[in-house]
Design a binder for these strands. Structure first.
Lengths: 159, 159
DNA sequence: TCAATCAGGACCGCAGCGGTCCGAATGGTT
DNA sequence: AACCATTCGGACCGCTGCGGTCCTGATTGA
């Protein structure tokens, strides 16, 4: 239904979490803080590192850190990193769908693509961070979550 | 990869085709003209009729016709009709993901959703129609396609 | 040398999509 | 009244891709 993948959602949460504190952070640590399963966090982090959104440091006391501040990361970059290039139709992404000259669909979705691309580039992770109710960013919230216990894993994503 | 369903692409093609000529048009007829498999055309038309984008007339000499002119149909409507409501994340669509008060993701994607929604409402099918190179709308093109023969069915979509 | 951590795969279950088909309802036509 | 063309509303199915897990290296600090 025109929705982006859950991994992308996770990626945003992880990136925002990385921004909360400087210095490297390990994937188990982020997993614990976000209530996202650890292997999934690792997967997301690896992908993000490959796309240059985060930098990694290997070895003992290694971890990940943000490559640039949240305000310099448009959502479009995150989506592109996880879900691949933003392309509404098959025609648009791979160049010629078969024979570019013959396909009348060619170019049809271009204006739509451009509009969405522009919209996605105009919103940074900092914007999304601010969209969260302040209450959720306070320590009290985290404590409260811990009490709730068992239901945590199925939750979509947390800070 | 953040792309919309092929059915939506078909829907646009079918709607544009409907606009090419007034009076009712049967789904086999549209299928022949668009090179889209007939059952699929029928399915798309049924869905569109259910959402009020086209009107249907049953019985002999029945068929479909546009409910409103192309310029009055934003792409958003077509996408919503075929793919369901535009909602980037699970949280956004169904109301509370579980416990709205506790989920810090709540509201996070809202600005992104609104931006995309606005972009999609700003483009009508008439705009998309005009984006097609004129050459493809001329009779000569259709004749040329017919010659190409066998490869037609696999083509993404045609007028 | 050892432990911690990232890297890069392989792997699998499952939902959703694209696509097809069938029976029933409907309304002209003869 | 009988018939036929056409839409309607499902059921159905194979397959791709996603979410999620795991395993085996490579790298670095203690």
């Amino acid at each position: 239904m025109f929705k982006l993948s859950k991994l992308t959602d996770y990626a945003v949460v992880v990136l925002v979490r990385l921004a909360r504190q400087d210095g490297v952070q390990t994937s188990p640590g982020i997993a614990a803080a976000t209530f996202i399963p650890e292997p999934t966090v690792a997967k997301v982090l690896k992908t993000l590192a490959g796309k240059g959104l985060v930098t990694s440091q290997r070895g003992a006391h290694g971890g990940y850190r943000l490559a640039r501040p949240l305000a310099a990361i448009p959502v479009a970059d995150v989506i592109a990193a996880i879900d691949g290039p933003i392309a509404l139709t098959a025609c648009v992404e791979g160049g010629s769908c078969e024979s570019e000259r013959l396909c009348p669909m060619h170019g049809r979705w271009d204006p739509v693509n451009e509009a969405i691309d522009a919209a996605l580039h105009g919103i940074t992770l900092a914007d999304m961070d601010h969209a969260i109710p302040r209450a959720f960013r306070e320590p009290a919230f985290v404590a409260h979550r811990d009490e709730s216990g068992a239901s945590a894993p199925e939750a979509v994503a947390r800070l």
